[in-house]
C-alpha cells in the first residue's frame, strides 16, 4: 500500500484504534522464571569452562613467556620473574601472582643449567604503524648491551612492518646494542633510537629497515623506555640475582 496520491491531493493518514485481538500476555512469573533459569544454567556453564581450562591456560601462558625469553637468551634454561620496585628494591613475583605494584617494572632473570645468571629479559612497548609493538629483549650485564629481541605482539603490515621479525640486517642491530648507564647509574648514557637506514653511527643506534622506519622506531622506543625504567634500578642489584634462588 502506498500513501502517495497520484492526484496530488493531500493524503490524511487515518489513525485507527488497534484492533482488540486477544494476544495472550505472558505472566510476569513466567518471564522471571525463565530468565532466572537461563542465568543459572549459563552461570554454571561459564564457571565450569573457566575452572576446567584454568590450569591449561596458565600453563600455556607460562610456556609462551618462557619461549619468548629463551628466544632472546638462548643459553637460558629456566626463568624467574621479578619486579624492580619504585623505591629501588627487587622483589620476586610468585607463580600466579600477576599483580605488579604501581611503578614497578617487571622483568625475568634467566638462568643456565648450572643455575648461573644467563641474562635479563624484559618487555617494552612502542607505537608502531598500526598499533603498539610489544617486544621482549634480552640484556647481558657483562657487556651492558641488548643481545636479542623477539616480538610479543604486533599488528604491523605483513610484508612491511613485520620484517622486524625476519630481516637479518635489522636483527644484526641486536647482537650487541649498547645500553650502558651513565657513571652515576641514573639513566642510560645514550638514548636508544632507530635511525634512518644507512645512517647508524653509534653502537646504541638501530639501523632502521628501509620502508619500515616507523616500525623500526617503535622497536627502538620500546627498548629505550623499558631500559630507561629498568636498568637504573636493576644494575646496582645485579649481584643479588647472580645465582638461582
Amino acid at each position: 500500500m502506498s500513501d502517495q496520491s497520484s492526484t496530488g491531493k493531500k493524503v490524511i493518514p487515518i489513525v485507527t484504534a488497534a484492533p482488540e485481538i486477544a494476544v495472550p500476555v505472558s505472566p510476569t512469573g513466567a518471564m522471571i522464571r525463565t530468565l532466572g533459569l537461563v542465568s543459572a544454567i549459563c552461570g554454571l556453564i561459564i564457571v565450569g569452562a573457566y575452572q576446567g581450562t584454568y590450569d591449561a591456560v596458565a600453563a600455556n601462558k607460562r610456556i609462551a613467556t618462557e619461549r619468548a625469553v629463551f628466544k632472546v637468551l638462548p643459553k637460558a634454561k629456566s626463568i624467574e620473574e621479578f619486579v624492580a620496585q619504585a623505591g629501588g628494591g627487587i622483589a620476586r613475583v610468585g607463580a600466579g601472582d600477576t599483580a605488579i605494584p604501581p611503578g614497578g617494572v617487571k622483568f625475568f632473570a634467566a638462568y643456565d643449567e648450572a643455575g648461573k645468571l644467563a641474562g635479563i629479559a624484559a618487555e617494552g612497548v612502542g607505537k608502531g604503524y598500526a598499533d603498539n609493538v610489544r617486544i621482549m629483549f634480552g640484556y647481558q650485564p657483562d657487556c651492558q648491551c641488548v643481545v636479542g629481541i623477539g616480538v610479543v605482539a604486533m599488528r604491523e603490515t605483513p610484508g612491511i612492518g613485520d620484517k622486524i621479525i625476519t630481516d637479518k640486517d635489522f636483527l644484526a642491530n641486536f647482537t650487541a646494542l649498547d645500553v650502558k648507564l651513565k657513571a652515576d647509574l641514573s639513566a642510560l648514557a645514550n638514548e636508544v633510537k632507530a635511525v634512518k637506514h644507512g645512517t647508524k653511527t653509534g653502537a646504541w643506534q638501530i639501523d632502521a629497515i628501509a620502508g619500515a622506519t616507523i616500525t623500526s622506531r617503535a622497536v627502538g622506543k620500546a627498548i629505550n623506555d623499558s631500559a630507561q625504567a629498568l636498568l637504573p634500578r636493576l644494575v646496582p642489584k645485579l649481584d643479588t640475582l647472580a645465582k638461582k634462588s
Partner: peptide, 24 residues
C-alpha cells in the same frame, strides 16, 4: 535476552577453550 545470554555463555566457553588449546 534469553538467546543472547545463551550465545554469550557458549562464546565464553569457546574463548577459554581456545586459550587452553593455543595462545598463538
Amino acid at each position: 535476552a534469553v538467546y543472547i545470554v545463551i550465545i554469550a555463555t557458549f562464546v565464553t566457553a569457546v574463548d577459554y577453550a581456545i586459550q587452553a588449546i593455543s595462545l598463538a
